[in-house]
């Protein structure tokens, strides 16, 4: 399927969108409407002013070149480290400083309150730290014993 718009990257590294009617928008950003529940469905291309210009129902519908452009552009906006293990927590009361190993390397996060651990579904957990950064635990039942025991104190 060929979409009714085209997408290119300018020399300044910004995305340019050309709509069917010939209007050109520079500096568009792709935004996922459901980043957690359905990341590849409903991606919007949003203008610099924050208006939705194009809605893509499914990423797989796009030609691969455009898809790559969008994925490239999305990547830095979606920094969401996946926690592999919880190595140390400062205290079991909140706020608590956690030392965790993630797929992006070891780091430290501050858990402000227990509510910041959000259950996405039966196994996935989303943890927001004090700076609003999101950490994902893909399957908390698959964590090692120690991490699981620590986590259960907060759930």
């Amino acid at each position: 399927m060929t979409p009714a718009f085209s997408l290119a990257r300018t020399v300044f590294g910004r995305l340019t969108l050309t709509l069917e009617d010939g209007t050109v928008h520079e500096g568009v950003t792709p935004v996922r409407a459901f980043p957690l529940s359905a990341p590849d469905d409903y991606i919007a291309l949003v203008s610099f002013a924050g208006r939705e210009l194009v809605a893509i129902e499914q990423l797989s519908e796009l030609p691969s070149a455009m898809r790559m452009l969008i994925i490239e552009e999305l990547a830095p906006r979606e920094f969401m480290p996946r926690i592999a293990s919880i190595d140390k927590v400062s205290t079991f009361a909140t706020p608590s400083i956690w030392q965790v190993s993630t797929d992006r390397g070891p780091c430290e996060l501050v858990l402000k309150a227990e509510e910041d651990i959000r259950r996405l579904d039966r196994t996935r957990l989303l943890i927001s730290d004090s700076h609003g950064l999101h950490f994902l635990i893909e399957d908390y039942t698959a964590l090692d014993q120690r991490s699981k025991r620590v986590l259960e104190r907060f759930l």
Binding site: A33, S37, E52
Partner: peptide
Amino acid sequence: AHDFILRLPLGYDSL
């Protein structure tokens, strides 16, 4: 509401 929802950090999945 669509535009401002897209501006939320997690879009429609924001709490």
